[in-house]
Amino acid sequence: MENKLKVKVSLIDDKICVLTIFGELTIFSNDFDLFVKEVNAYMKMGIFRFILDLTNLNYIDSSGIGVIIRLATNASKHNTKIITICNNAQVLRIFSVSNIDKILKFVKSVNEGLEFYNNDQGVSQ
């Protein structure tokens, strides 16, 4: 039995990284470490605009939240925010309890997120 985590990555103009996450984002998820390394690699490349499509995320724990906080911290240094798409009530409740809903920008679609970044006055690369 394993907690499945699947991530689809799209890089837009080498500036915006869209992470579509399926399944469970917990430290016990298979490939969680790989996911963290991959996210860190994108940040080292200088990417700070991330769109997290969590439409298909079923569960998240403090380890998964930790990854999102690191992304949000990095984005904040560039005066912008991490875009999040999420409609799972349980995941949203965890975001609320952890207070990270206050440091994320919630939108309804990836296109809306792209529009936000296009109009964003954050520090450019």
Partner: peptide
Amino acid sequence: QIEKFQLRKRGLYMISKI
């Protein structure tokens, strides 16, 4: 309370809120 970007003790904070 917890700082906006604080990583440590967030799990404990969340348990205490729930």
